[in-house]
Computed example of a mutant assay.
Amino acid sequence: MAVSEKKVTGKFYRIWSTADKLWHRISFWTHANDVEFNDGKTAQTKVGAIKGITTSTNTAETGYAADATTVTTLNQSVTTLNQSVTELNQSLGNLKTDLNLNGLSNIKIDAGTVVKEVKSGNNSFVLFNFQQVAEIFGLQTLSATDIVILVSNGDGKAFPVHLEGVTFMNNSWYVVFKDILQGDMNCRVQYIMFYCKH
Protein backbone atom coordinates (compact mmCIF):
# COMPACT_ATOMS: atom_id res chain seq x y z
CA MET A 1 0.00 0.00 0.00
CA ALA A 2 1.34 3.39 -0.96
CA VAL A 3 2.31 5.60 1.94
CA SER A 4 1.53 9.27 1.81
CA GLU A 5 4.43 11.14 3.32
CA LYS A 6 5.88 14.63 3.63
CA LYS A 7 9.55 15.50 3.82
CA VAL A 8 10.27 17.62 6.86
CA THR A 9 13.54 19.57 7.05
CA GLY A 10 15.10 21.93 9.55
CA LYS A 11 13.60 20.09 12.53
CA PHE A 12 15.23 18.62 15.61
CA TYR A 13 14.19 16.58 18.60
CA ARG A 14 14.69 17.25 22.29
CA ILE A 15 14.66 14.83 25.18
CA TRP A 16 14.41 15.82 28.83
CA SER A 17 17.27 14.55 30.92
CA THR A 18 16.49 13.88 34.53
CA ALA A 19 20.19 13.56 35.24
CA ASP A 20 21.08 17.20 34.66
CA LYS A 21 17.57 18.62 34.39
CA LEU A 22 18.20 19.93 30.87
CA TRP A 23 16.68 19.40 27.46
CA HIS A 24 19.12 17.52 25.23
CA ARG A 25 18.99 18.29 21.51
CA ILE A 26 19.43 14.94 19.79
CA SER A 27 21.13 14.47 16.46
CA PHE A 28 20.34 11.27 14.62
CA TRP A 29 23.04 9.30 12.77
CA THR A 30 22.39 9.46 9.04
CA HIS A 31 24.09 7.47 6.30
CA ALA A 32 25.59 9.49 3.45
CA ASN A 33 23.51 7.50 1.00
CA ASP A 34 20.35 8.65 2.82
CA VAL A 35 21.13 12.38 2.58
CA GLU A 36 19.68 13.75 -0.63
CA PHE A 37 20.63 17.03 -2.32
CA ASN A 38 18.19 19.19 -4.26
CA ASP A 39 19.34 17.69 -7.56
CA GLY A 40 18.43 14.21 -6.35
CA LYS A 41 22.00 13.02 -5.80
CA THR A 42 23.10 11.70 -2.43
CA ALA A 43 25.87 13.09 -0.24
CA GLN A 44 27.87 9.96 -0.97
CA THR A 45 27.65 10.62 -4.70
CA LYS A 46 28.49 14.30 -4.26
CA VAL A 47 31.38 14.23 -1.83
CA GLY A 48 31.96 10.61 -0.94
CA ALA A 49 35.13 10.36 -3.01
CA ILE A 50 36.84 13.22 -1.15
CA LYS A 51 39.40 11.83 1.30
CA GLY A 52 40.05 15.13 3.00
CA ILE A 53 41.16 18.75 2.62
CA THR A 54 44.82 19.61 2.30
CA THR A 55 46.96 22.75 2.14
CA SER A 56 49.81 20.90 0.46
CA THR A 57 50.69 21.74 -3.14
CA ASN A 58 52.77 18.56 -3.48
CA THR A 59 50.03 15.98 -2.94
CA ALA A 60 50.26 13.36 -5.66
CA GLU A 61 47.44 11.14 -4.36
CA THR A 62 44.00 11.68 -5.88
CA GLY A 63 40.90 12.35 -3.80
CA TYR A 64 42.00 15.34 -1.73
CA ALA A 65 40.37 18.77 -2.00
CA ALA A 66 42.51 21.92 -1.86
CA ASP A 67 42.09 24.31 1.03
CA ALA A 68 40.87 27.78 0.00
CA THR A 69 44.09 29.39 1.22
CA THR A 70 46.07 27.03 -1.01
CA VAL A 71 43.91 27.95 -4.00
CA THR A 72 44.49 31.63 -3.25
CA THR A 73 48.25 31.09 -3.09
CA LEU A 74 48.22 29.17 -6.37
CA ASN A 75 46.13 31.89 -8.03
CA GLN A 76 48.65 34.50 -6.89
CA SER A 77 51.50 32.38 -8.26
CA VAL A 78 49.71 31.95 -11.59
CA THR A 79 49.07 35.70 -11.76
CA THR A 80 52.74 36.41 -11.09
CA LEU A 81 53.76 33.83 -13.71
CA ASN A 82 51.39 35.34 -16.28
CA GLN A 83 52.85 38.79 -15.61
CA SER A 84 56.37 37.42 -16.07
CA VAL A 85 55.37 35.70 -19.32
CA THR A 86 53.80 38.93 -20.57
CA GLU A 87 56.95 40.89 -19.73
CA LEU A 88 59.10 38.22 -21.41
CA ASN A 89 56.95 38.32 -24.54
CA GLN A 90 57.26 42.09 -24.61
CA SER A 91 61.02 41.82 -24.23
CA LEU A 92 61.23 39.22 -26.99
CA GLY A 93 59.06 41.42 -29.17
CA ASN A 94 61.39 44.35 -28.61
CA LEU A 95 64.39 42.12 -29.30
CA LYS A 96 62.80 40.93 -32.52
CA THR A 97 62.21 44.53 -33.56
CA ASP A 98 65.71 45.64 -32.57
CA LEU A 99 67.40 42.81 -34.43
CA ASN A 100 64.94 42.79 -37.31
CA LEU A 101 64.54 39.04 -36.90
CA ASN A 102 61.78 39.09 -39.49
CA GLY A 103 64.51 39.63 -42.08
CA LEU A 104 66.57 36.58 -41.11
CA SER A 105 64.92 34.54 -43.84
CA ASN A 106 66.57 36.88 -46.35
CA ILE A 107 70.08 36.25 -45.04
CA LYS A 108 72.47 33.89 -46.81
CA ILE A 109 76.01 33.06 -45.71
CA ASP A 110 78.98 31.66 -47.60
CA ALA A 111 82.41 30.96 -46.15
CA GLY A 112 85.60 29.49 -47.48
CA THR A 113 89.23 29.96 -48.42
CA VAL A 114 90.77 31.13 -51.66
CA VAL A 115 94.36 31.79 -52.85
CA LYS A 116 94.91 34.98 -54.83
CA GLU A 117 97.99 36.07 -56.74
CA VAL A 118 99.03 39.61 -55.83
CA LYS A 119 101.33 41.53 -58.17
CA SER A 120 104.23 43.68 -57.03
CA GLY A 121 103.42 47.36 -56.51
CA ASN A 122 99.83 46.79 -55.29
CA ASN A 123 98.23 47.25 -51.92
CA SER A 124 94.96 45.49 -52.83
CA PHE A 125 93.59 42.69 -54.98
CA VAL A 126 90.20 41.53 -56.23
CA LEU A 127 88.62 38.91 -54.01
CA PHE A 128 85.36 38.52 -55.94
CA ASN A 129 83.63 40.38 -58.72
CA PHE A 130 79.92 41.05 -59.02
CA GLN A 131 79.16 38.02 -61.17
CA GLN A 132 81.06 35.64 -58.91
CA VAL A 133 79.15 36.76 -55.81
CA ALA A 134 75.82 36.50 -57.63
CA GLU A 135 76.70 32.94 -58.69
CA ILE A 136 77.81 31.97 -55.18
CA PHE A 137 74.39 32.94 -53.77
CA GLY A 138 72.40 31.87 -56.83
CA LEU A 139 71.05 35.37 -57.46
CA GLN A 140 69.76 36.89 -60.65
CA THR A 141 70.02 40.43 -59.32
CA LEU A 142 72.38 41.84 -56.73
CA SER A 143 73.15 45.13 -55.04
CA ALA A 144 76.52 45.92 -53.48
CA THR A 145 74.72 47.15 -50.37
CA ASP A 146 73.35 43.64 -49.81
CA ILE A 147 76.84 42.15 -49.34
CA VAL A 148 79.17 42.17 -46.33
CA ILE A 149 82.54 40.36 -46.47
CA LEU A 150 84.91 39.66 -43.57
CA VAL A 151 88.43 38.37 -44.25
CA SER A 152 91.56 37.17 -42.52
CA ASN A 153 95.06 36.21 -43.67
CA GLY A 154 95.09 32.41 -43.86
CA ASP A 155 98.90 32.09 -44.16
CA GLY A 156 100.95 34.84 -42.55
CA LYS A 157 104.27 33.23 -43.53
CA ALA A 158 103.46 33.12 -47.22
CA PHE A 159 101.93 36.59 -47.17
CA PRO A 160 103.40 38.55 -44.24
CA VAL A 161 101.04 41.51 -44.61
CA HIS A 162 98.12 42.59 -42.42
CA LEU A 163 94.79 42.60 -44.25
CA GLU A 164 92.83 45.68 -43.26
CA GLY A 165 89.44 44.86 -44.77
CA VAL A 166 87.35 44.73 -47.91
CA THR A 167 86.37 47.64 -50.16
CA PHE A 168 83.79 47.59 -52.96
CA MET A 169 84.88 49.43 -56.10
CA ASN A 170 84.50 48.99 -59.88
CA ASN A 171 81.93 46.20 -59.44
CA SER A 172 84.38 44.13 -57.38
CA TRP A 173 85.26 43.54 -53.74
CA TYR A 174 88.92 44.30 -53.04
CA VAL A 175 90.99 43.02 -50.13
CA VAL A 176 93.01 46.01 -48.94
CA PHE A 177 96.28 46.06 -47.01
CA LYS A 178 98.54 48.83 -45.81
CA ASP A 179 101.92 48.25 -47.49
CA ILE A 180 102.85 48.24 -51.17
CA LEU A 181 104.15 44.82 -52.21
CA GLN A 182 107.76 44.69 -53.34
CA GLY A 183 107.33 41.42 -55.20
CA ASP A 184 104.69 39.01 -56.50
CA MET A 185 103.08 36.90 -53.77
CA ASN A 186 100.20 34.54 -53.17
CA CYS A 187 97.73 35.36 -50.42
CA ARG A 188 95.42 32.80 -48.84
CA VAL A 189 92.24 34.56 -47.78
CA GLN A 190 89.82 33.08 -45.26
CA TYR A 191 86.46 34.77 -45.84
CA ILE A 192 82.88 34.80 -44.66
CA MET A 193 80.35 36.56 -46.83
CA PHE A 194 76.82 37.65 -45.89
CA TYR A 195 73.97 38.43 -48.26
CA CYS A 196 70.99 40.31 -46.79
CA LYS A 197 68.32 41.75 -49.06
CA HIS A 198 67.33 45.19 -47.74
Rank of each mutant, 00 (worst) to 15 (best):
L88R: 10
G103Y: 06
I136Y: 09
A144V: 10
L88F: 08
W173R: 01
N102M: 04
K157R: 14
F137P: 03
N170K: 14
F125R: 01
N122Q: 11
D155N: 15
F125P: 00
L104A: 07
L142Y: 06
T97M: 06
N171I: 01
A144N: 05
L95R: 02
L92H: 01
G93H: 10
V126I: 09
L150V: 07
L88M: 09
F137K: 12
L99E: 03
T86A: 10
V115N: 11
Q83L: 13
V133C: 07
T141K: 12
T97R: 06
S105F: 09
I149P: 01
S91C: 10
G112S: 08
A158W: 03
T86S: 11
L101Y: 05
N94R: 10
N129W: 02
N153I: 10
W173N: 01
L88K: 07
D110F: 03
G138V: 10
G154D: 06
I107N: 03
A158G: 14
Q140K: 13
I109H: 09
N129S: 06
N82Y: 06
N94L: 13
L95I: 07
D155I: 08
V148W: 06
E164P: 04
Q90P: 01
E164I: 11
V114R: 03
G121E: 02
V85P: 09
T167L: 13
S105T: 13
I136T: 15
V175M: 03
F125C: 04
L88N: 04
G93R: 10
V114L: 11
V118M: 08
Y174G: 00
S152N: 12
V118I: 13
G112P: 02
S143M: 12
T97D: 09
G156R: 15
G103T: 08
L101M: 11
F130E: 10
V148N: 06
S152W: 05
Q140T: 15
L163C: 04
L139P: 01
G154M: 05
V166R: 00
V126E: 05
V151F: 02
